[in-house]
Design a protein around this nucleic acid. Structure first.
Lengths: 351, 351
DNA sequence: TTGTATGCGTTATCAG
DNA sequence: CTGATAACGCATACAA
């Protein structure tokens, strides 16, 4: 038996295809008893409408594309999950495409997605710095998440890294720490700079200097966390807290502090960044850290996208509207960069 | 301007829609010069065919559904990536759906996917044990990856955990270790049992006993790795190698060995399982481990699915075929469980 | 070699 | 309230 179509349902219910369609779509202009008959027939046949045909007519497919450069990575997944549950599973499905950081592949995927008539796109970059825009003249709304677009005319949703840095240091200060060091990753990452900026700002408010007299930039690895900690202890043995730019780095910090016999958190408190559960929750002791709220970022992206899609449709339908706004074809997306606040996660490494 | 359609292309090229279609689809029955004209017109307009319309006709959408219960997890992602690149980015796109372990949500997703007329399905479970089948009468081929289906009539692709356990112990033996312990996760996981079985088999071949006189089952956590190692060292201080059932556990093992001042790998060698890069590569020392070849598993799943889809189509087309086989509607999938071998990854923790 | 006509499964616009 | 009928964008058997 081939797939069951609306015709089969109509036939079983003894009505025309048109009536069956109206009945199932909740159109008011159909007698209650007829509607029941149709619905029962549909259930009996386990009918599910062919969304391809629907999309062809309504110009909406109920699909969005998620274009990422960081699949193996830790960032796109939470964003994807947030987006997925904001959309609602039976409303919208998401195409996941990984460009693996390759511009050519990205173009291919983009083409494929547009060809599939997705209603919108979410672009997730591999690192939190600005990335090239997909262009201004796309037929669907686009939202850049995690990595902002280089084009200020696009809408980007990013983590508030400055706020995150401030949050971490604030937490340490509230726990009575005064000699706070900052060990972080690659200095070419905007996120590293921003977190440091936030940390320094909070220290300055308290009239404090950075322990070790510098921000220790390096790489986003456990190994760097270890070697930086050794250097730090040599330069400033009295340090009583370390703010690590990532949980990986924090693990390296913990490792060396243990080697040196320094109690955590009594002697030195440690806080990380990312709340990467496998690293943070299993650390010894479990690691306090800053969570970027990526699921929320994903949800927000989905909501914005949804609004824009609805806007596109409405504006397309209301040709008689009096609106003189210069909204682009991609819908009602307010351009600019929105920022999502971080959240402190307290575990034992800060007491 | 709305999306450009084949009509626009035909018009610009000065031919009929039918001719334009044939030209673009590489049908032989069209003059070369005409074809060129059409192709140029298509490029000029940046035409891309509406796959919805195509799918409606050809009964193939060029999409597959990936139904997972483990999105945040480490397993579905490599599988997804393998599948993605086996399909080829411009041929097939994949819908990713996370059921989050909820049967209701899974049903919803399944319905949505079928309604979108995916050509096939890959189901990835949350743990390597058998999971309920989606059923036998689905209109598309289904492949179960990582978690096998409970129904032997389905096709499942799983990791060779027995072989993996054997591989790990074999590696230790080849490096001259004789007093080998095994610390692993939850005993209710088939994978834990299988890996232990493989390990024991290889030990038996060598006439060796397990150090500590037992398999240390517990949980898949670093904390368990630590406490089990302490118990182990107490019971059998002479142990010269540990095979950990996961990289997380291995990290815990390493931690305690360091605390006890036991050199790795000189005094005790350690090997993990999963090759979870963030844990294994950054360990001190970097951790040898067993890789489950999940990308390959994903590729294989994609290939099998592809073959089945082609089979479905061919068998549907050749109504005059002489085949008397009782192949199901879901295509030519050979039922049963296929096994993908593991791979040894050597780093410094085993010398 | 090219064009015409038909249909894929739905929704939407009309008459009845 | 219900039922023909025309799209939606494309592929294909058939006619020219």
């Amino acid at each position: 038996m081939g797939p069951v179509t609306l015709r089969d349902v109509a036939q079983l219910a003894g009505v025309s295809i048109a009536t069956a369609s109206k009945a199932l779509n909740g159109q008011p202009q159909v007698r209650a008893s007829t509607r029941d008959r149709v619905i029962r027939a549909a259930e009996q046949l386990n009918f599910s409408p062919n969304t391809l045909a629907q999309g062809l007519i309504t110009q909406r497919t109920g699909t969005v594309g998620l274009l990422t450069s960081d699949l193996e990575g830790r960032f796109s997944i939470p964003i994807l999950m947030g987006a997925e549950d904001a959309f609602g599973s039976d409303q919208t499905s998401v195409f996941l495409c990984d460009a693996r950081g390759d511009a050519i592949r990205e173009k291919h995927h983009l083409r494929a997605l547009l060809s599939r008539r997705v209603d919108g796109l979410i672009v997730v970059g591999a690192r939190p710095d600005a990335r090239p825009s997909l262009g201004r003249d796309l037929p669907v709304p686009v939202i850049y998440a995690y990595s902002p677009s280089e084009d200020p005319a696009d809408l980007s949703l990013v983590t508030d890294n400055v706020g995150g840095g401030r949050l971490a240091v604030d937490h340490l200060i509230r726990h009575g720490r005064r000699r706070i060091a900052h060990i972080t990753g690659d200095a070419t990452y905007g996120a590293a700079q921003d977190r440091a900026t936030g940390a320094l700002a909070r220290l300055a408010e308290e009239g404090l200097q950075l322990a070790g007299d510098q921000v220790w930039f390096g790489s986003w690895s456990e190994a760097w966390g270890r070697s930086a900690t050794r250097m730090l202890l040599e330069r400033d043995p009295g340090v009583d807290a370390v703010f690590a730019g990532s949980d990986e780095i924090a693990r390296g910090v913990l490792d060396v502090l243990h080697q040196e016999g320094l109690d955590i958190p009594q002697r030195v408190a440690v806080i990380g960044f990312d709340n990467w559960n496998i690293l943070a929750a299993n650390a010894r002791p479990p690691l306090s850290t800053i969570d970027m709220n990526l699921e929320q970022l994903g949800r927000l992206a989905a909501q914005r996208l949804f609004a824009a899609i609805d806007g596109t449709l409405r504006s397309g339908a209301s040709a008689a509207g009096a609106s003189a706004s210069g909204a682009s074809a991609s819908g009602a997306l307010a351009p600019g960069t929105e920022t999502v606040p971080c959240r402190l996660v307290t575990r034992e490494s800060t007491g």
